[in-house]
């Protein structure tokens, strides 16, 4: 749930740098300078004081379920997403009728795309998972089922298959699994 908060930051002594925040957290900011008006600063006079009024929309503030409550300032983590464990399928090898599970742990909530390829590099599965939802949850061991239903009911021939996990336009992990007949 999003909450609206207002933060007023006062700076003096010639510094006018604002806190480093990401674009998702702030709606707008206004720089106020005595006798100057909104939106202008005298950058050549380093002794000027100024006021910065920030209107903030916090999308993930102090939400334990979304995994960023440990950050001291409550801001969204924008560091590059990575896998904190090697992505693995269990059990492996397995029969498609029994099924298996792909498990992986993300460093933070992130949009994730998973593709599966056969041994001739043909894509046989592709699915996107949203950040904070099933498959895209950070600091949690995500588990995704691999069974006949994800391939449209098709029974894969025995062999080796390869999966690739991508996020934010880059590959963050990959692996392989073996399918045997029932």
């Amino acid at each position: 749930m999003s909450r609206l908060s207002v933060v007023m930051i006062l700076c003096s002594g010639g510094a006018y740098a604002a806190p480093q925040v990401d674009k998702y957290s702030f709606l707008s900011y206004t720089v106020l300078k005595p006798n100057v008006g909104v939106g202008s600063l005298d950058k050549t006079n380093s002794s000027d004081s100024f006021y910065v009024l920030l209107a903030v929309k916090w999308s993930y503030l102090l939400d334990d379920q979304l995994g960023i409550s440990s950050r001291p300032n409550g801001l969204a983590d924008t560091s590059p997403v990575s896998l904190e464990t090697r992505p693995l399928v269990y059990p492996n090898p397995f029969s498609l009728s029994d099924g298996a599970v792909l498990g992986y742990r993300l460093s933070r909530n992130a949009d994730v795309e998973i593709r599966i390829f056969d041994i001739r590099a043909n894509q046989i599965f592709k699915q996107r998972y949203d950040a904070g939802a099933y498959g895209g949850i950070g600091n949690t061991y995500n588990k995704l089922s691999i069974n006949r239903s994800i391939f449209g009911g098709y029974d894969l021939p025995a062999g080796i298959y390869f999966f690739v996990i991508s996020s934010e336009g880059r590959v963050i992990g990959k692996g392989k699994f073996a399918v045997v007949p029932k």
Binding site: T85, L88, V89, Y90, P91, N92, P93, V101, G103, R105, I119, Y141, K143, I160, G175, K176, F177, A178
Partner: peptide, 16 residues
């Protein structure tokens, strides 16, 4: 295809 993993599950439900 070489080095295909055989996996197990630990007490936390994670795979190795």
């Amino acid at each position: 295809v070489v080095d295909n993993p055989i996996t197990a599950q630990d007490g936390n439900g994670e795979y190795f």
